[in-house]
Computed example of a mutant assay.
Amino acid sequence: MCPGEIVHHKNRNKLDNSPGNLQVFPNQTEHDKYHKQTDLWFKLSRKSFRRIRRIRW
């Protein structure tokens, strides 16, 4: 890796360092942009899952 590069764990598990789970960003700014684009979807997905789980159980 080059100085300043950031490793992102796709499945959000920092203990899972398998190559398919890692994505390298050139810098923290690009990593932050990625999270701004994807975190809302991730949060909404989790809320929906919890809601569905409550209904089912």
Rank of each mutant, 00 (worst) to 15 (best):
T29K: 12
L44N: 12
R46F: 11
R53Y: 14
K14A: 10
I6L: 01
W57D: 06
L22G: 11
V7S: 04
W41Q: 10
S45E: 11
I55M: 06
R50C: 14
V7L: 08
S45I: 00
H35F: 07
I55H: 12
R12S: 10
S18W: 02
M1V: 07
H8P: 04
I52H: 12
R12E: 08
K43P: 00
E30T: 15
F25S: 05
K10A: 04
R46T: 13
W57G: 07
N17A: 02
L15H: 01
K33Y: 03
R54T: 13
K47I: 13
S48D: 06
P3V: 13
C2L: 15
D39H: 04
N27V: 02
W41F: 13
D16P: 02
K43I: 05
N11W: 02
I55L: 15
I6M: 00
K47Y: 11
L40K: 13
S18H: 08
T38L: 03
E5Q: 08
P3N: 04
D32N: 14
L15R: 13
K14G: 10
H8S: 07
V7D: 03
Q23K: 11
P26W: 01
R56A: 11
D32S: 15
K47L: 14
F25E: 14
C2F: 08
S18G: 07
D39Y: 06
I6K: 06
L44W: 02
R56H: 10
Q37M: 15
L44P: 00
L44R: 08
E5P: 03
G20H: 06
Y34C: 04
Y34S: 01
T38C: 00
Q28D: 09
K33P: 00
K36V: 11
L15N: 07
P3L: 06
S45L: 09
N21A: 10
F42Q: 12
S48W: 08
S18M: 07
N27A: 04
R46I: 13
N17R: 05
I52D: 15
P3Y: 09
E30N: 15
L22N: 09
